[in-house]
Design a protein around this nucleic acid. Structure first.
Lengths: 149, 149
DNA sequence: ATTGCTTGTATGTATATACATGTATTTATG
DNA sequence: CATAAATACATGTATATACATACAAGCAAT
């Protein structure tokens, strides 16, 4: 649905202003879907993000710094998120022996199993996005990349 | 910059998965810029959103319900946001005489003046998005609209 | 008018986020 | 080597958000 109808705003200054609102709105829309899907599994989108980064590294550990660097939302508090995940036994933490300021974080078996389950959900989630063809999705990706410069 | 490099994730299952991450990431990027611009004016993005809706209605009042309906982030707590704005004297509230459950919210002169100032800022903000041409922005808008179905 | 249902808004609470500051460790510099 | 600066992370605090619940006003049927 056209963004103007969606938020009942009839006129925009130009396509760029409309685009700004469109991206923010669409992201909120997607984010809500995302959180809804994750809810039954007891983790937030940011926690999910961290688990995926850790799986990408597995079995190598990642420091908190690496996590911040790769997270979608840089402003999230990686320390606290890791602690939440640790309480749920989805990750383990250990002071890095080479640099005792740093903390090595590793995903656990339980964490990997959770991601496996979520991968199945992910497929049904992505199916929701099939209003766009593979080609259109690729175009959208190019435009977003270009937008960010 | 390509989203993969941005978050150091080398492989994606397909363009749709990449797109999902790309939209969420780009939105976070834009949202941060947006908040940063609003910061000096002492209002949040959601509060700004409400003020703009009210300006669109001006001088007609909007009920809280209308605000929720038109807001970008439906989950925000419109009641509380309105109260924050009222404390700053940017809006006024009055129980609706026709339906005493409802609350009429109107933007004040001070609120309108603030928006005027922000409009100038907005131009410089939009300039940041000029990596895309008007035509590309229009394509992006079409794709996002189509994505949401 | 009474009852029960819906609607519009407010509030309580738990969690999340943003930002500043604190603390330990390492690295750099004289 | 001593000290200052930088780094990695943790924590305090204020604010924001999500969701459930509460509550008053209106509505509909009897």
């Amino acid at each position: 649905m056209e963004i103007g109808k969606e938020i009942k705003q009839t006129k925009f200054k130009n396509e760029h202003q409309k685009m700004l609102i469109n991206i923010l709105f669409t992201s909120g829309w997607l984010g809500a879907k995302h959180n809804f899907n994750l809810k039954p599994f007891g983790i937030s989108a940011q926690q999910f993000n961290i688990l995926r980064i850790l799986r990408g590294q597995h079995p190598k550990p990642a420091t908190v710094n690496i996590l911040i660097d790769r997270m979608l939302d840089k402003n999230s508090n990686a320390s606290r998120l890791v602690e939440k995940l640790r309480i749920k036994k989805l990750v383990e933490r250990a002071v890095c022996p080479e640099d005792r300021r740093a903390v090595n974080v590793v995903i656990t078996k339980k964490g990997l199993d959770l991601l496996d389950e979520l991968d199945k959900m992910d497929n049904t989630f992505l199916k929701d996005l099939k209003n766009l063809s593979e080609k259109e999705a690729a175009t959208l990706n190019l435009l977003l990349d270009k937008l960010r410069g």
